[in-house]
Design a binder for these strands. Structure first.
Length: 254
DNA sequence: ATGGCTTCCGGAGGAAGA
C-alpha cells in the first residue's frame, strides 16, 4: 500500500502533471492540497479515468483538499468537527481499513500576524480531533502540507530562517505534540539523502540552488509505522515545466 | 529591498503563498 501527498498549487493548472505522475507512480492513495477548485469544477471524470475514486472539498481561490484512491473511500469527513472554520483544509476517509487524513495546515504568514494565531489554534484543534479519531481508528495516517519544518536539518539555511514562520518554536512544538500522541514522521524512519526538501521557492532559482524546506509530511500511527518499509520524496515533478512549488512525498506500508 | 515567482480573480493590480 503506497500513500502519497502533494501540494499541487492549483489542480486546474497541475491536472496534467497529476495525471502523468500517477501513470509513473500508481500509488494507492494520493492526498492533494491547494486544489483551489470549487466542488462544482472538480475534475472528477479525469481523475476517475486515471483509475481513482476521489473525495474532495474546495472553495473559490484558496485552499481545497482531495483524496484520490484506487480503493473505495468510506466515512468521508470534511473539515475538523471541533473547529468552526470556513477554510477548506481537511478531508478524511477510510481506505482499506486505514483512516486517511489529508490536511493543508495554514501558512501563518509571519509570527506577528493574525494568521499565525489562526495557525496555532488550528493545529491545537487538529491535535484534539486526531486524539478522538485515533481512538476509533488505530491505523491512522496524517498526510499533507504541514507548513512546518520540524528541525533545522529540514531547512536549507537555518540561521536565515531562525524565528520565522514555518520554523518558529511554537509551530515546531505543535509538530512535536503530534509525535507525542503516537505519530511517527515516516521520512525520518529511514536513512535519507542530506538536504532533501519538499518545497522550494519559485523565486531566485530556489530549486536550482536547493534553497528548500521539508514541510510536507506523512505521520503514521504506531500500527502503521510498524508496517512502513519506505518513505521517499520524489523531486522529479519539481523539475517539470510549470511545476508546483511542492513535490510529492510517498510512504510504503507493507 | 515595500523585492523576487506563481496563481487567483477579473479583465488591473492586489492578495496570498512559504
Amino acid at each position: 500500500m503506497k500513500l502519497a501527498t502533494w501540494n499541487v498549487n492549483s489542480l486546474k493548472v497541475r491536472l496534467p502533471q497529476v495525471q502523468q505522475w500517477l501513470v509513473d507512480n500508481p500509488v494507492d492513495v494520493l492526498c492533494l492540497q491547494e486544489t483551489k477548485t470549487v466542488d462544482e469544477k472538480f475534475p472528477v471524470a479525469e481523475i476517475e479515468a486515471a483509475g481513482y475514486q476521489v473525495a474532495f472539498t474546495g472553495q473559490k481561490t484558496y485552499n481545497g483538499v482531495a483524496i484520490l484512491s484506487r480503493h473505495p473511500i468510506t466515512d468521508v469527513t470534511k473539515n475538523n468537527p471541533l473547529l468552526d472554520d470556513e477554510q477548506q483544509r481537511i478531508i478524511a476517509g477510510t481506505i482499506q481499513g486505514i483512516r486517511i487524513v489529508c490536511a493543508y495546515v495554514p501558512n501563518g504568514q509571519s509570527p506577528d500576524s493574525d494568521k499565525y494565531i489562526y495557525k496555532l489554534n488550528w493545529l491545537k484543534a487538529l491535535h484534539e480531533w486526531l486524539a478522538q479519531e485515533q481512538q476509533q481508528h488505530p491505523e491512522l495516517a496524517l498526510l499533507g502540507d504541514y507548513n512546518i519544518a520540524p528541525e533545522d536539518r529540514d531547512v536549507h539555511d537555518p540561521a536565515a530562517w531562525a524565528g520565522q514562520v514555518l520554523v518558529s518554536e511554537p509551530e515546531r512544538a505543535a509538530f512535536v505534540r503530534l509525535q507525542e500522541m503516537g505519530f511517527t514522521d515516516a521520512f525520518r524512519m529511514f536513512e535519507q539523502p542530506e538536504k532533501l526538501y519538499s518545497w522550494w521557492d519559485y523565486r531566485q532559482m530556489g530549486f536550482r540552488l536547493n534553497r528548500g524546506l521539508r514541510i510536507d509530511h506523512i505521520l503514521l500511527s504506531a500500527p502503521l509505522a510498524a508496517r512502513c518499509s519506505a518513505c521517499v520524496i520524489d523531486k522529479v515533478p519539481r523539475k517539470w515545466e510549470q511545476p508546483s512549488d511542492h513535490t510529492p512525498v510517498i510512504a510504503t506500508i507493507d
